[in-house]
Amino acid sequence: MELTTLPHTDIEVSKICLGTMTWGNQNTEAEGHEQMNYALDQGVNFFDTAELYSIPASAERHSNTEKIIGSWFQKNQNRDKVILASKIAGKADMTKFIRTTGFQKDALISAVEGSLERLQTDYIDLYQLHWPERKTNFFGQRGYVYDASDFWEDNIHQVLETLRDLVQEGKIRHVGLSNETPWGTMRFLEESKVHAGLPRMITVQNSYNLLNREYEIGMAEISHRENIGLLAYSPLAFGVLSGKYLGERLPDNSRLKLFPNYKRYSGKTAVAATQNYYKLAQDYDLSLTQMALAFVNSRPFITSNIIGATNMHQLEENIASIDISLTDEILNKIETIHNEIPNPAP
């Protein structure tokens, strides 16, 4: 397994990160334990979760995933073998059953303490803000749209102060962002630069895959010049980049069969681009899954690639992508397809 370092730390993490958001809904506790056992055996030491998971968000299933990870730690007594990341859910209609106060001090403290209890651990290595409190373009919205009803007041200093206190208490070690924009990322970074003692955001967890390379517009330069690493989620675009939905197929128990509203990567142009990538992978005797994940792994701004699976075959193939190196010829042909159909999914 290839290792990288969390920016501005000496913490080594695997280039492949184990995503967990299906555990507690599509996957049972036993299946989650099996996945963690296999991943750790393969050198994957970086796990990502959130208080919101499993998905889709619901009052009945929220935090199930953290509980499954916690029971695995308790069973195996191996917390020291894993670099663990979790997230606080942002303010939104779909999270009112968790809390309604966004990233206020009491909400952050409550969220961290709740996660620690469920995860059966004394600390979280990387704690992330799942999405911004302000109204902006995230979760499938391609561009920023001005909204006169957005009365968000800049509370970034206060958020960082609370996170600083949690770091000083030893409950979290480092902090990161998720689903964040260039403006938001720089705003957090500048605040910690200007005010000594505030924690620095070291990573940002945004979607990135062959169908959505919008991270390269603005965010990639921030990664390079500010040394903030991308934790890429949805590298297979909800499984679309496995090719299993081509030909209008809808396999049983697949995410799009179970949750048909997850259409972010199912538009006509996205399907056309997927077909082109599928043919390219076939031309070089690769699976589309291997090529798609290897592409993400190869990007210079990637700290870790968050893969997820609902069965062991998928998990094995996803982790094995670390052994695939794409030639310049393949990468050039990927760019040709991208230039013909750029970012077909937001």
Rank of each mutant, 00 (worst) to 15 (best):
L84V: 06
G43F: 14
Y265Q: 01
D165Y: 12
D125L: 04
I156N: 06
E340I: 07
L286E: 06
H313M: 14
F295T: 13
I222W: 03
T269E: 14
D165I: 06
D122L: 05
T22H: 00
A92E: 08
A39G: 09
I69E: 00
L126P: 01
S325R: 11
N155P: 00
G197E: 07
K244W: 02
K193N: 02
W23D: 02
N45H: 12
L18G: 12
Y144H: 11
L189P: 10
L189M: 02
E329F: 09
R187D: 06
R173M: 12
Y208M: 00
E153Y: 09
K135G: 03
T95L: 08
P235A: 11
L177D: 02
T4W: 05
G184D: 01
K87P: 00
W183Q: 07
I337M: 04
T185K: 00
N212P: 08
L84E: 00
R255M: 08
I324Y: 09
L315M: 06
S192D: 00
T136G: 14
A292M: 01
L286F: 03
G243T: 02
I69D: 10
M94D: 09
P251T: 09
Y144M: 07
F295E: 10
E190I: 13
W131T: 03
A196P: 05
S287E: 04
H8N: 10
G90E: 05
E191L: 07
F103Y: 15
E31P: 03
M1K: 12
N227R: 02
M201V: 13
R299K: 15
L3P: 00
I319H: 02
T28D: 08
F295Q: 05
K81A: 14
D10N: 15
S298Y: 12
M201I: 12
G308S: 12
L189A: 05
L6I: 13
A273P: 01
L250G: 03
K257M: 11
L315Q: 05
M186Y: 00
T101V: 04
I83T: 07
R299P: 09
T100C: 11
G32I: 07
L126G: 01
F46C: 10
L198P: 03
S242C: 11
I330P: 06
I16R: 09
A220C: 11
E191K: 15
R264G: 01
A237R: 01
E31V: 07
K257R: 14
G102H: 10
D122G: 14
P56T: 00
E317Q: 11
A272G: 03
S207Q: 15
M219E: 13
D283G: 14
G140E: 14
N45T: 09
P56Y: 15
L6A: 05
S192Y: 00
Q314M: 05
F238M: 12
Y245I: 01
K268Q: 14
K279D: 08
H130D: 08
N261C: 08
R173D: 09
S242I: 06
A273V: 11
Q290C: 10
T274Y: 04
A272H: 12
R79W: 10
L84C: 05
L84G: 09
I228K: 01
M312L: 11
L256R: 15
K333P: 07
T181D: 05
L231K: 03
L3H: 10
Y233A: 05
M291C: 10
E113G: 10
